[in-house]
Design a protein around this nucleic acid. Structure first.
Length: 561
RNA sequence: UGCCCGAUAGUAUAAUGGUAGUACAGCAGAUUUUGGUUCUGCUUGUCCAGGUUCGAAUCCUGGUCGGGCAACCA
């Protein structure tokens, strides 16, 4: 048995349960409702639930909490399964609350027979009114004291379809004066004449969450049912049903859900972003959904790493997006092949380089991983360079190209700027320079030292690609807590499309989901929108850029501001 | 103003009565053919008030602040 140390309060509870003999092994479950796509908040729960099972040699069931036929669809079931697999997890059993409908129905009858449940004919408005308020007790329904026989008969008739939606409900008989609102005779079953994604029209009564979740846990012998904080108040009810039913004693534990800066996490709000066209879909690379992150270029490993780093606690929290970005940078730095791509091109002409000469220069694929090897890139007289790698009047600490200044062209030669040309609008379109023939990378006899190295692409060999630059979706850290609508804070520059960037020719073979580091620019991933003759790249995340910070300091310290 | 959670650097998270530590972020420097990576150093914290104790982030009491609960949603 390997030495394991609890890394959060839930693991502490598990270790104590194992030690005390409350359970011999551990079983958890991940219980999504199939009415939407999974997001990074679900990933926290997935990593927690599956991680615990792995750590303590237990198992995790995937269970779809499909008790509301009006909102649930098979499409979501498939999407959820794919996302969990992509994250790297395999469930022990694939379960559905709907598989237990017959059993749940029997449980309900058992409670009726124990005098602990009754059929109520009140309308939903009446029930709400009689429920009282958090500070005032509720009052008992006039139907609360029906006989067991009558309740049994009415409940069976409910199942048989004798009543319309909303005409009757089955309620637990607990305590209308309880300080816990969930114990004021909670509804167990409601009538819905609706098509269920798995049971079709076999049922017209469906159990509520509170009468399905704990019972499903119990049926599956889940030892630790881990959910989010909003269910804390449900725990007494969770336990009450299990005790009255005298079934396997699953236990519920709650942790704080994940919040991330500069995004929203609620299903409702994500749906709104999709439906109102703020993003292109659930898999838009700006979305915090698993599919969005995947399309953006995040790896399953980086998401798991993130979920482990954020920890598990009961206090409300909002995690810096920069931590997620750190996790993906850290992994991609190790594995991503480096390539040269010019995003905002300016032409560079090496006036002393022979006109039709082409040299294929060797360059490393990944300096962090020597085993990644090298490749060659074509070098010639006319090159594309990044427009912000040249300035007419550079500030003090600028060490790129400017009149009279020298830089190293990555894996090629040292050059010195000799001039430039502007168009009618005053924009520089061509830069002229001379290269030092004896300064070639790997064979540098020039003895020169330059501060800057810039990337480049040979004009004659460049391939045109589309690049989509993504930025945070919102302009504020917490769009949920701002005055007005959260959509008022959407970042209008969250997507910038560069329709013609120039890439070195080696990129032509790239396939969807391939990841690269565009040298000095960031990590990029091939988008599925790519076609054989038109590659599309998504920027996953920029490289850390201490130069932009320097620039910002310049600006803020200038007397103009 | 009923019940239930919670409160440790900017953000998270450890310390389980015994030196408040770690990560991210930030700042400064070194290295660098990516202003990347790596390395070094630095700044910043126990919500408040009492109490128990030789000793309290930790235990007790009372506050304060934040969050949740009154769906035939989950």
């Amino acid at each position: 048995m390997e030495e394991v140390k609890a890394s959060n309060f839930i693991e502490e509870i598990i270790e104590e349960d194992l030690r005390s003999g409350r359970c011999q092994s551990v079983r958890t479950r991940f219980p999504p409702e199939p009415n939407g796509y999974l997001h990074i908040g679900h990933a926290k729960s997935i990593v927690l639930n599956f991680g615990i099972a792995q750590k303590y040699s237990g198992e995790t069931n995937l269970r779809f909490d499909d008790t509301n036929p009006e909102t649930e669809e098979t499409e979501y079931v498939e999407a959820i399964k794919e996302d969990i697999r992509w994250l790297g997890y395999q469930w022990a059993r694939e379960c559905y609350a709907s598989d237990y409908f017959e059993q749940l129905y029997a449980f309900a009858e058992k409670l009726i027979r124990k005098g602990l449940a009754y059929v109520d004919d009140s309308s939903s408005e009446e029930i709400a009114r009689m429920k009282g308020t958090p500070t005032e007790p509720g009052i008992e329904s006039p139907y609360r004291h029906r006989t067991i026989e009558e309740n049994l008969r009415l409940f069976r008739e409910m199942r048989e379809g004798k009543y319309r939606d909303g005409e009757k409900v089955l309620r637990a008989k607990i305590d209308m004066a309880s300080p816990n609102m969930h114990l004021r005779d909670p509804i167990m079953y409601r009538i819905k004449h609706a098509q269920h994604h798995r049971t079709g029209n076999r049922w017209c009564i469906y159990p509520m969450y509170d009468f399905a979740h704990g019972q499903s846990d119990s049926i599956e012998q889940v030892t630790h049912s881990i959910c989010t904080l909003e269910f804390v108040d449900h725990r007494p009810l969770y336990n009450w049903f299990i005790e009255q039913l005298e079934i396997f004693p699953s236990r519920q534990y709650e942790f704080a859900r994940l919040n991330l800066t500069y995004t929203v996490m609620s299903k409702r709000k994500l749906l709104q972003l999709v439906n109102k066209g703020y993003v292109r879909g659930w898999d838009d690379p700006r979305m915090p959904t698993i599919r969005g992150l995947r399309r953006r270029g995040y790896t399953p490993e980086s998401i798991r790493d993130f979920c482990e780093r954020i920890g598990v606690q009961k206090r409300e929290n909002i995690i810096d997006m920069s931590l997620l970005e750190f996790c993906i940078r850290e992994q991609l730095n190790k594995i991503a092949q480096r390539v040269m791509v010019v995003l905002q091109p300016v032409k560079l002409i090496l006036t002393n380089y022979p006109e039709h000469q082409v040299e294929w220069l060797s360059t490393e694929n990944n300096p962090e991983d020597p085993s990644a090897g090298t490749r060659t890139v074509p070098f010639s007289r006319e090159l594309w360079i990044e427009s912000d790698d040249f300035m007419e009047n550079p500030p003090k600490k600028y060490f790129r190209l400017a009149p009279g200044m020298s830089v190293r062209l990555k894996s090629a030669y040292i050059i010195t700027c000799t001039g430039y040309e502007k168009d009618s609008e005053g924009r520089v379109h061509t830069v002229y320079a001379e290269y030092m023939p004896n300064s070639r990378s790997g064979d540098d006899q020039s003895g020169l030292k330059v501060k800057g190295t810039i990337h480049w692409v040979s004009v004659a060999h460049a391939i045109g690609i589309e690049v989509r630059l993504y930025d945070r979706l919102f302009t504020v850290e917490n769009p949920d807590e701002q005055p007005g609508e959260f959509t008022d804070y959407i970042n209008p520059h969250s997507l910038e499309i560069i329709s013609q960037a120039y890439a070195e020719p080696s990129l032509a073979q790239a396939k969807p989901e391939d990841r690269f580091q565009f040298l000095r620019k960031g990590y990029f991933c091939v988008d599925p929108d790519s076609t054989p003759d038109r590659l599309v790249f998504n920027r996953t995340v920029t490289l850390k850029d201490t130069w932009v910070k320097e620039l910002k300091k310049e600006i803020s310290s200038s007397p103009l501001s």
